[in-house]
Computed example of a mutant assay.
Amino acid sequence: MAAPPSTAVRNVSPALMSLPARRRALMLVNPNARRGTESLDPIVNRLEAGGIDVAIERFSSPGEVAADIVRRRHEADLAIVCGGDGTINAAANGVVAAGLPMGILPMGTANDLARTLEIPTQLELAADIIIAGNQRKVDLGDVNGHPFFNVATIGLGADLAMGLTAETKRRWGRLGYAIGALKVLMQARPFSATIINREGTSQVKTYQIAAGNGRHYGGGSVIEQDASIEDGRLDLYSLEIDNVWKLALMLSAFRSGTHGAWEEVRTARCVEFDIRTKKPRPVNLDGDIVTQTPAHFRIRPGAITVFAPPAS
């Protein structure tokens, strides 16, 4: 006679047997982000109800983020980064080195990566995307060994980044960007640069050189109307106008990504290029100054896995 089935197996509900294993998340919180002081208790409860056990770690310096992810990689199945674009940028190398997928809770001012990936700024809905578990491999830009998700700029964007303080962004939000931009424009001067890519060498006089990896930057401007964070390319433009105030006429084009239609805007799509200037100039990566010219730009296709809705 055959032995009866095990009682342990016989008494388990089929519904429970089909439940996925619980996941462990390392949640890294930037308390200096614009929404960094908000209570995360409802979000943690929502994640845990969705099968994700959460360990929270707060940090005082973005430089700590990547190291913490690598140090604690064996304790987690995913990393959740709570902050703005600068915080997410700081986490990039750690997530790549640890081999963990990354969830995003957008708590910054501009939240351009979340916008590119169509992750809502409402934290409960952003948490639901992590719970749902859909993953996408996205590209990373790289300048002199430093990663960026959205855009790297030399000129106006870098000047703006140096002038914006965390307090200004926390107090004024996007209005702080507008106030800062007006100050930068009033003092702006063009600079000479050399752009070197596979098409050759160009000597330019420009107010800004930008290279986009994602689609959105600067609180919603579009780097190029067909740009994608999954296309394995960088979208470059050089702003070669004769008067910086002409930007007022070009504003709608920059918001829609059609600025390349203006003859004063040089554009290119590259996987690798170099920018050289007579004197070292700061390079802004996703809101933070982390390197300077000479600058070597390259794309790292599919370098990082993120939790996000399926691509439109």
Rank of each mutant, 00 (worst) to 15 (best):
P4C: 03
S6F: 06
A8M: 13
N11A: 06
V12S: 10
V12I: 15
V12A: 14
S13Y: 07
L16V: 08
L16Q: 15
M17K: 12
S18A: 14
R24Y: 05
A25Y: 02
A25I: 05
V29Y: 01
N30D: 11
R35A: 12
T37Q: 14
E38G: 01
E38C: 00
E38T: 06
L40P: 02
L40H: 01
I43Y: 03
L47D: 05
A49S: 15
V54W: 05
A55L: 05
E57T: 13
E57G: 06
F59V: 02
S60I: 12
P62T: 09
G63E: 14
A66Y: 07
D68N: 15
V70W: 10
V70T: 13
R71H: 14
A76P: 08
I80W: 04
V81T: 13
G83V: 08
G84W: 06
G86R: 07
I88N: 02
V95F: 08
G99Q: 12
M102D: 00
L105P: 00
P106R: 07
M107L: 09
M107K: 08
G108D: 03
A110W: 04
N111Q: 08
T116F: 01
T116K: 09
L117M: 13
E118H: 11
I119E: 00
L123R: 14
E124D: 14
E124L: 05
L125I: 06
A127N: 02
A127S: 07
D128Q: 10
I129K: 01
I129F: 01
I129P: 00
I130L: 05
A132I: 00
G133A: 05
N134V: 05
R136Q: 14
K137P: 00
D139T: 01
D139P: 00
L140C: 13
G141H: 07
V143L: 12
V143A: 12
H146Q: 15
H146S: 11
H146A: 10
P147F: 08
V151N: 04
T153N: 12
I154D: 01
A158Y: 11
A158E: 10
A161M: 03
G163Q: 09
T165H: 00
G173C: 08
I179A: 02
K183F: 00
V184Q: 02
M186Q: 11
P190C: 02
T194V: 10
N197H: 12
R198M: 07
K205F: 02
T206M: 02
I209R: 03
G214Y: 06
G218C: 06
G220Y: 07
S221W: 09
I223S: 03
L236V: 15
Y237L: 04
S238Y: 00
D242F: 11
A248D: 01
L251V: 12
S252D: 09
S252R: 11
E264R: 06
R266T: 14
C270K: 03
V271G: 13
V271K: 10
E272S: 15
F273P: 09
L285P: 00
G287K: 04
I289N: 13
Q292W: 00
A295T: 02
R300S: 09
G302Y: 03
F307I: 01
A308C: 09
P309N: 06
P310D: 08
A311G: 08
